[in-house]
Write a protein that binds this DNA or RNA. Sequence first.
DNA 1: TGGCCGCACTCACATATGTTTATGCTCAGG
DNA 2: CCTGAGCATAAACATATGTGAGTGCGGCCA
Lengths: 239, 239
Amino acid sequence: MTNPLILKLEQRDQLSDDEKKALENAIARIRVVEADEDIVREGDRPTESSLLLDGFAARYKIVSNGRRQISALHVPGDFLDLHSFLLKTMDHGVLALTTCRIATVPHATLEKITDEYPHLTRMLWLSTLIDGAIHREWLTAMGRLSATAHMAHLICELFLRLKAVGRADGDTIQLPVTQAELGDTLGLSTVHVNRVLQELRKEGLIRFQGDALTILDWERLKKVGEFTSTYLSLQNEDR
Amino acid sequence: MTNPLILKLEQRDQLSDDEKKALENAIARIRVVEADEDIVREGDRPTESSLLLDGFAARYKIVSNGRRQISALHVPGDFLDLHSFLLKTMDHGVLALTTCRIATVPHATLEKITDEYPHLTRMLWLSTLIDGAIHREWLTAMGRLSATAHMAHLICELFLRLKAVGRADGDTIQLPVTQAELGDTLGLSTVHVNRVLQELRKEGLIRFQGDALTILDWERLKKVGEFTSTYLSLQNEDR
DNA sequence: TGGCCGCACTCACATATGTTTATGCTCAGG
DNA sequence: CCTGAGCATAAACATATGTGAGTGCGGCCA
């Protein structure tokens, strides 16, 4: 089975065999983290970065009154903390939402890659830039869209991101995320998440039973969520 | 006068003379953009990136009902669209909030830097990672803090960022940003921005007359905004 | 010098979303 | 087969923030 990171990057630009080999060799070990466990903690100074191979994970921060905000949801192929390579100190934690299979890449190896593989370096840089683009999109959705639109937007995004790494089954994705976690992602209460999901269901836009989320009307869902995929950089071009 | 980007980067790690020279030489030309003009437009595919030398600028997105969300506020030393080097298509616009002096750096030159200067490349990468860290912090503030706390947080951040590039005068910074623009940044209405500023003033935390913003009680302001500066990566270390 | 125009500021009222509390489903474990 | 935990769902009520409309000030320009 191919490394989902390679899958993700090759969607954006071609990788040489050398580069692919360098990526594969960068993996020092593979570990498994159980659901609800921390993968990295706020304040940590990791000496390696974690690449998600399987499962769902979230970056999060806790604020004073114990409330939590999730600032990123991660799917296979995503680096969870590639930024710790240069930022050094984690300004947030990373949590496993399901059982996660994780490849660890030592920062020393990343440094070597930046010395020897300029194009591959740009591709890794790109992957953090996409994270940033997603952050901006979330900011816009959170600040200026209604809760319903925001939820629709998130669903559109997750569908495309999962599809891009071969994790969509037709119009259905597995989304093993509780309504409380969705609330922490969207900045809403669980109660309101529930209301909003009901509405999307009532409108015939989605089905969502158990973990299985099915898109029933992609076009209308996109419209409700004011979704355009530009920010995901899904095009293959020279970078 | 030193290039504020060099000032900004040298605060995070040492730069060699060669690297500084490479940065200076990367500037193809300098242009001036008047307040309220677009510097880059959503959908553009720039062939050069813009480095802000003087003035204030904002990244923004307009949503369907005409509402606007500002996803980043930029001060001198910030790249406005370094990410366009690899993301290629702008997923948002960039606007001059005041008259801006801007240095343009061709993407071809950036590519050359990534080929020849690994450490400098990492420092440029770092600067986009700091943008990302700020985005995450804004997400948390927007999703889980009260409007007042969010405003306090933003003020703390801008104060430190301006101070880091020598643009603070004691406890005072120039913040030539209207309340409407602050609203678009925080995801609030102008009316509520006004209420929240009154409250911070009444509490004796800030003075804000005209463009001059003075921090009257840093410790309490930090506390109200639940502000910690980790995410700004202000420490000098090997990167 | 007069008159706009942009902006800060106010008030009255509207509403999206939060809070609290409770119910019932489903599924894993004993 | 029962039990409890975790989760989705529900209803009643509370509130932070939005909306719409308006005032007044200060600076710029004719």
